[in-house]
Computed example of a mutant assay.
Amino acid sequence: MTTEPEDLPLSPATLADLRHPPLARRARLRAGLGQQAFAETYGIPLGTLRDWEQGRSAPDTAAASYLRAIANDPPAVAAAYAKATAA
């Protein structure tokens, strides 16, 4: 009997990602946006967002707070960011 790749047990890191996606990805999915649109809407460099989502780096405390605010109310944070950048 051969073991197919999908039959192999998941690594702890992969399993953790499946249970609880990174905060940046959760915020982006709650906003209903792709990476490019999310980065532009909320003023986050696209490369930074990708690094956060792929686990290559983690947001600092301030960025994590910003992402939590986005996840809680994407339209309100987008409006506040747009207003701040227009001023």
Rank of each mutant, 00 (worst) to 15 (best):
A58T: 15
D51K: 12
D51G: 15
P59S: 02
A69E: 06
N72M: 12
A69N: 04
A63Y: 10
D51T: 11
R68L: 13
A63M: 15
T41F: 10
T41M: 00
P75T: 03
P75R: 05
A62T: 12
T41I: 06
W52S: 03
E53H: 02
F38A: 04
T48A: 11
G43A: 10
D51L: 06
T61I: 14
D51R: 13
A62L: 14
Y42F: 15
I70Q: 04
L67K: 05
W52D: 10
A39C: 08
A63C: 09
P75V: 05
G55D: 01
A62R: 14
I44H: 01
I70N: 03
Y66A: 05
G47D: 12
R56M: 10
P74D: 10
S65R: 15
A71R: 03
F38W: 02
T48L: 11
S65L: 15
S57Q: 09
R50H: 14
P59T: 12
D60C: 06
R56L: 03
A39S: 14
A62F: 11
G47V: 02
A62P: 00
L67D: 08
Q54G: 13
G47S: 11
P75G: 04
Y66V: 03
N72Y: 05
P74M: 11
D51I: 07
R56Y: 01
L46R: 14
A62S: 12
S57Y: 00
R50Q: 13
T41R: 11
W52I: 01
Y42V: 09
Q54R: 13
L46V: 12
T41H: 10
I44N: 04
A39R: 05
A64H: 06
L46M: 11
R68C: 00
P75D: 07
I70T: 00
R56N: 03
N72K: 14
R50N: 12
L46W: 08
S65P: 00
A69M: 11
A39F: 01
P74R: 08
F38K: 02
F38Y: 07
A58K: 15
R68A: 12
S65K: 13
L67T: 02
A64P: 01
S57K: 04
I70H: 04
E40T: 09
G43R: 00
A63G: 11
A69H: 07
A69P: 00
S57G: 04
L46Y: 14
G55P: 07
D60V: 09
I70C: 04
P59E: 08
D73N: 13
W52V: 06
A39N: 06
L67M: 09
D73M: 09
A58D: 14
R68T: 07
Q54I: 02
I44K: 04
D60H: 08
T41E: 04
G43H: 04
F38N: 09
I44S: 11
T61N: 12
P45C: 05
T61E: 15
R50F: 05
W52M: 05
I44M: 00
A63N: 10
F38E: 08
P59Q: 08
T48V: 11
L46Q: 13
W52G: 10
P45H: 13
